[in-house]
Design a binder for these strands. Structure first.
Ligand SMILES: [Mn+2]
Ligand SMILES: [Mn+2]
Ligand SMILES: [Zn+2]
Ligand SMILES: [Zn+2]
Lengths: 138, 138
DNA sequence: TTACATATTTGTAATTATTATAAATTTGCA
DNA sequence: TGCAAATTTATAATAATTACAAATATGTAA
């Protein structure tokens, strides 16, 4: 019950999400583990703290968090949905060797020509694939 | 057996892919239908031309095409993998109302700071979500 | 052309992530 | 405390993808 828990409760409340124990712990985990975890990795870690935790709850909670803009979904490879507690625009890099998914700072890309007139944009995503330095030096 | 078929055969050969009937028809379809189709929509159309076509073949072929850089995978929503015969860098816009997936012209975004030094980049993807003009005017 | 090895396609079964559903539990309030 | 609503849970259903082995097609040597 440290003060950080109070902070997380407040963040959830501000977003219009009722702070259940499961929701607080999941948000806590996302906040402190900026690895863009999957549903399953969230579940595997938190089931230790909440032995009754159900994977369905993790699915439900992530859906709820997305609806309230508390997280963003990152889909780079099919078959691997990840989540990001950082909702401001930023890019990602996925290493095709070790699988790590890292944040990348980029200039916000510029639409050319008429594109910006034809759509009402609500979300922008940018990502790269390749090989990270660690994997390249081995 | 029009001359365009010959062209497709040549494209496949140049990429190192043996041109079977199924592969030619699938590439033909992708070339002439720039809607970023799914596995299933490719199958549903082509099974009319090739009644014995198997969906497994479509999966196998798209995997092969990707390995030979003949197509790119576009994963915007989880649960919907699409394919793009245009392999040069360009952006996409997905309308969250009608589901259409359109090409968007953008400047190739610029990595900031050290990012470009830390990775060997092989692919870049940029996409937007929102509402298209047609859907907004209804 | 025929025979045969290799490559490709096909149909089916297995796997796996996600969603649907309904019962159980928890929560907030009268 | 008692009760209605919200949340969580366990289980079953759904659906996309992959694995696999048999069937078919292709290319080449004799
Ligand atoms: Mn991120
Ligand atoms: Mn495209
Ligand atoms: Zn790596
Ligand atoms: Zn639309």
């Amino acid at each position: 019950m440290g003060s950080s828990t109070e902070n997380f409760i407040q963040i959830l409340k501000n977003a219009g999400v009722k702070p259940s124990i499961q929701r607080i712990k999941i948000y806590d985990f996302l906040w402190n583990n900026r690895t863009h975890p999957t549903i399953d990795s969230i579940f595997q870690v938190l089931v230790n703290e909440i032995p009754t935790l159900s994977k369905t709850t993790v699915y439900n909670t992530m859906k709820l968090f997305m609806e309230h803009q508390l997280v963003r979904m990152v889909t780079i490879d099919e078959s691997e949905v990840r989540f990001d507690v950082v909702t401001q625009f930023h890019g990602h890099f996925k290493c095709e060797v070790c699988g790590k998914l890292m944040d990348v700072e980029i200039e916000n890309p510029v639409l050319v020509n008429q594109a910006k007139l034809d759509f009402e944009v609500s979300e922008a995503h940018y990502y790269l694939k390749g090989i990270c330095n660690e994997c390249n030096n081995n």
